Simulated assay, not measured.
Amino acid sequence: MVRVERALCALILIGLAGGCTSGEKEPAVVDPAPTAGASAPAWSEPANYSFVLSRGCDAAAPLGRYQATVTNGAVTGATRVGAPAAAPSASAEVDLGPVTGDEGEEIDVPTLGELVAMAETAQEDGAQVSTEFDRTDGHPAKVTINVTDTPGGAECWIISDYKV
């Protein structure tokens, strides 16, 4: 009886293995309604567009918000939204880098293509990177880069009000 059971198991395994290597493809199942996990369409950066860039991982309390305009592939205007721009001290004799004040840190606003390239470079250099894309047109919606070993060390850029 044990021999019969072993023979049946062997035949079943051979049948399963043969079915897996038969070369015939299973029919693809296509879901007509995209789900929350659906991927975004491919995005090509247009020459002209505008967007709001929020810096900081807490969308309710960003470190800074900027209305940006891109013309011919370059940022031609970036205005701080919701807070006055921080200004360097009149007594500063040297450029010490970004100005930091109570209202947050001023940054040079990148194009969305530059932001994506920055994320790719950081990932190649070993950083933990997450890039989310808009599901309707594929433009970047959020970029998170963490070059530290702590969850609180992440830098985030959230894109909203994207208009072509």
Rank of each mutant, 00 (worst) to 15 (best):
M1L: 13
R3D: 13
R3C: 07
V4G: 02
V4H: 09
E5K: 08
A7I: 07
A7E: 06
L11I: 00
L11P: 00
L11T: 01
I14D: 00
G15V: 11
G15R: 08
A17C: 10
G18I: 14
G19Q: 07
C20L: 12
T21V: 15
T21K: 06
G23F: 10
K25W: 13
A28Y: 13
V30R: 11
D31C: 09
A33Q: 13
P34F: 12
A36M: 12
A36R: 14
G37M: 08
G37P: 07
A38C: 09
S39V: 14
A40K: 02
A40Y: 04
P41N: 04
W43A: 03
S44K: 13
E45V: 06
N48F: 10
Y49P: 03
S50Q: 09
S50H: 11
F51C: 02
L53G: 00
S54H: 02
C57L: 14
A59E: 14
A60E: 02
A60H: 00
P62I: 06
R65C: 02
Y66E: 01
Y66V: 04
A68W: 01
V70N: 03
V70K: 05
V70Q: 03
N72W: 11
G73M: 02
A74W: 03
A78R: 01
R80K: 08
V81H: 03
P84W: 12
A87K: 06
A87P: 00
S89G: 02
E93A: 08
V94R: 15
D95K: 15
L96P: 01
G97Y: 05
G97Q: 08
G101E: 08
G101Y: 09
D102M: 15
G104M: 06
E105W: 13
E106D: 12
V109L: 10
V109N: 10
L112W: 04
G113T: 09
L115A: 09
V116A: 05
A117E: 14
A117Q: 14
M118L: 15
T121W: 03
D125P: 00
S130C: 05
D134C: 09
T136I: 13
D137W: 13
G138V: 03
H139T: 08
P140A: 05
A141E: 12
V143W: 08
T144C: 11
T144V: 15
I145M: 10
N146W: 09
V147Y: 03
D149T: 13
P151N: 11
P151I: 12
P151W: 14
G153W: 12
E155R: 09
E155Y: 12
C156H: 03
C156G: 06
W157F: 15
I158M: 09
I159F: 06
I159L: 05
D161L: 10
